[in-house]
Amino acid sequence: MTDRPLEIERKFLLDDLPDLNGVPRVEIRQGYITALQDTTEVRLRQSGEDYFLSIKGGEGLVRTEREVTITAEQFEALWPETAGRRVEKTRCKGRLPGGLAFDLDIYSGVLAPLLTVEVEFSSESAAEAFSPPAWFGKDVTLDKRYRNKALAVMGADALVELMRR
């Protein structure tokens, strides 16, 4: 076992948006300081009025993640280092029947009309036992092409090709 904080989540594509009436939304912009081929991710994120620096490691269903709050000034000072490796999206945070939380992302810019939904779990066994609701699409948890870091460097043409598969 590790003493590092773990993120256990599954990620799915969506073909259409479900009813999001009353579901809170926040605008997110995030950029990656590390290059696509780096196995550790160093990410800057602005979520509404909050700013974070995150380090993620590992692959697949279970990854390590550390996140610290930074100031707007620190964020803006580092933001230029993410040029060419950025994602903008609207995040909708809701709950599934049974209480599990979901994060539904509506991508903008060159990544539109991509829609994804992620669900975090308390254990790997809970993640593996999860039966997604009917409105969830294809499970892309293990597909590296759908990690935000990969999407951040993807152009519109590459996204169209990816979504055809």
Rank of each mutant, 00 (worst) to 15 (best):
S123I: 11
G48L: 09
L61Q: 04
K93L: 10
D50F: 05
R43N: 07
Q30C: 08
R91E: 05
E49N: 11
L6W: 07
R45P: 13
S108V: 14
L104K: 01
R25Y: 03
A77P: 06
P24T: 03
I106T: 12
E27Y: 14
V23A: 08
E41N: 12
T90F: 08
T40P: 10
L14F: 05
A77L: 15
E118G: 11
T71W: 08
P113K: 02
D16C: 11
W79D: 13
L100Q: 14
L61T: 08
A112C: 11
C92F: 11
S108L: 14
E65K: 12
T71G: 01
L111P: 02
I33H: 09
S47P: 14
G60M: 13
G94K: 01
R10A: 13
E128C: 08
R25Q: 15
R29N: 09
A72C: 14
E67P: 04
Y107N: 04
T39V: 11
P113N: 02
R85A: 13
L36N: 05
P80G: 09
L14E: 08
F102Y: 08
S54P: 04
R85P: 00
T39Y: 09
E41S: 15
L104P: 00
K11S: 05
G22K: 06
L17I: 04
V110N: 06
S123G: 12
R4I: 05
V87D: 01
S125E: 15
K93Q: 13
F136C: 03
